[in-house]
Design a binder for these strands. Structure first.
Lengths: 147, 147
DNA sequence: TCCTAAATAGGAATAATTCTTATTTAAGAA
DNA sequence: TTCTTAAATAAGAATTATTCCTATTTAGGA
């Protein structure tokens, strides 16, 4: 019984060696629920892996992005954050609190997908499409909702 | 007859002192036609203002963003670039060449605007909405087109 | 022309990220 | 299981990006 079994399966399936560092880093990105930065991942994984080095976290996060295990999101300020969710969704970035909030809308997805079906982008191999809303959170103690 | 007249009017109208540095920096962002980075702006303006300091370019670019004279765009890699165009448009970011290409589509604009009219985002003061397509340019010598 | 608050140059300080290399380790082969 | 080896990691140096500090300069109003 290994609580990391599914995480390790993902790493292995992507063709990477399963190391303790990679396991805890991928688990962190999945469980932190906050689009963490490298530094935040580092702080989190030090609990279960105190000797891990920051360089390893940088390198591993990028490796996971290359392998399609996680996604990266760059904030309006140009800071890199990581996201375990690989499905189509948008991001709200709060410029005052640095929070990233996911939002899902099937209709909006469809409209965008249809747009790029109809229009032809030539000479470009599209990797991803991101719709990001940037703004200030008005009351920092309350949630942002979209409905 | 001052070739900077319109540029300087913009600076002045936004409530900022009109300095030579600000003038050439704003002119650079408008005329470089390439969503330049701070470093690129710095190299460009050194021609007409050799003693300008890099710190001034950093500070001035951010000041212009605050005043709404230019926009900032963060690439998929988290690097900051500046954009003189303030109207609604999307960006294609080429991950292999670091180019940013503008694209305009009235229909897509409308769809997105309508979405945010219909849906209510609460507790957020929206500053801007960006739709960015990230991908590799296939033939680096040819243009990207969208039609 | 004078005055003053704001802007700038220059460089130091800090932060973010990548690189280097010796050591360790995963995982396949024997 | 043990051996082998290429790949991964730790640690910290190096590099790059950005901000900060302060003395000097300057725009623009009085």
């Amino acid at each position: 019984m290994n609580k990391y079994a599914d995480i390790q399966a993902k790493i292995s399936d992507s063709g990477l060696k399963v190391t303790h560092q990679r396991t805890v880093i991928l688990e962190a990105v999945h469980n932190m629920n906050s689009h963490p930065s490298v530094e935040q991942i580092y702080d989190y994984v030090k609990e279960s892996c105190p000797s891990i080095s920051l360089g390893t976290v940088y390198k591993t996060a990028e490796t996971f992005v290359e392998k399609g295990l996680i996604a990266k999101v760059s904030t309006h300020e140009g800071h890199m954050r990581y996201d375990p969710k690989l499905d189509n969704h948008g991001h709200i970035y709060c410029t005052n609190t640095a929070e990233i909030v996911d939002y899902y809308d099937e209709e909006l997805n469809e409209v965008i997908i249809n747009f790029f079906k109809k229009k032809k982008v030539s000479n470009l191999k599209i990797k991803n499409i991101t719709l990001q809303i940037n703004g200030d959170k008005i009351d920092p103690d309350k949630e942002i909702s979209i409905k």
